[in-house]
Computed example of a mutant assay.
Amino acid sequence: MGNVGRPAATPLAIRSGHIEPNRALDPGLVCDASIDDYVRFLCAMKYISKQIKMITKIYSFDCSHASLDLNYPSFIAFFNRNKTVASDKVVREFQRMVTDVAHAMVSYNAKVVAMKGFAIRVMQEKLVFHEKYEKKSFALILVGEEP
C-alpha cells in the first residue's frame, strides 16, 4: 500500500537525484529549451493564463500546441487510472535534443533501467559528437500497461 495518509508525489518530485554543484561547471551535455517550450509545457500542465504570464513575463502566447514533452533531462508520462481493460499496452515516446558543451570529440552511451511493468528503448543508443556545441537527438520509448 505505502504512502497511506500522505499525498502522492508529483512527477517532478520523484527520483530527483543527488545534486553535485561542482559537476554543473562541466555538464557535458545540455538540453536546450526555449521560452516557447516552457509555455507549451505550462499550457499542458493546465496552468491558467494569469499563472503563465506571471512565470514567463510573456503576455501573448498560444496554448494550441501544448506539450508535456519538454526538452529536459527528465520524462513525464501520465496514465489513465480509470481504464477498465488492464491488459492494454501504452506507448509514450519522448524526443530530446542535446548539445555537447564539454569536448570536441566525445561519445555517450545510453544506459537505462526499466521499472517493473515497463520496457524502455532508446533510439540512438550511442551519440557521437565530433565538435563542441554539436547537437544530436534521440528518442526514449516507454512501453507499459495501464494501471
Rank of each mutant, 00 (worst) to 15 (best):
F41A: 12
D88L: 07
S16Y: 10
V113R: 14
N80Y: 03
S87L: 03
V143K: 03
P21L: 15
Y38G: 11
S74D: 15
A9R: 10
M105K: 15
D62M: 04
V98G: 00
F78Q: 12
I55T: 11
Y47P: 04
A44N: 11
N71E: 08
I19H: 12
F118I: 04
V122C: 01
I19G: 10
F41S: 13
A110R: 00
Q124M: 06
L68P: 03
S74E: 05
K53C: 10
I76N: 02
E134I: 11
A104P: 07
V113L: 11
L142G: 12
H130M: 08
V85F: 13
M45V: 04
I141E: 15
K132H: 07
K116E: 05
K126W: 02
S107V: 04
D26I: 09
E93Y: 01
A114C: 03
A8S: 03
C43G: 03
R40T: 06
A8E: 09
V106K: 15
A8V: 01
D36F: 07
A114P: 05
D69Q: 14
E146A: 05
A8I: 04
M97C: 08
T84H: 04
Y38P: 05
A102F: 12
Q95G: 14
K57R: 13
E134Q: 15
E146W: 08
K57W: 03
H65F: 04
I52N: 11
E146P: 02
E146Q: 08
I52A: 03
K135I: 08
F138T: 04
I58S: 09
V106I: 14
N22D: 15
F41M: 11
A104F: 12
A104H: 14
V113G: 09
A119L: 00
H65D: 13
V113E: 12
I76T: 06
F94L: 13
R6A: 02
D69Y: 13
F78P: 11
I120D: 09
L70D: 02
S67D: 09
S34Q: 04
L127Y: 01
D26F: 01
F118W: 15
P21T: 10
I76H: 03
E145H: 12
V112P: 13
N109I: 00
H103V: 07
K136D: 05
P21V: 09
D100C: 14
V143W: 00
R15E: 12
E20G: 08
I120S: 10
E146L: 02
M123K: 09
S64W: 06
L29S: 01
N3L: 09
T84G: 11
A24M: 15
S49W: 15
R15T: 12
K116S: 10
K136F: 00
N71V: 02
P147L: 02
E131F: 03
N80P: 05
G5K: 05
M45G: 03
P27T: 01
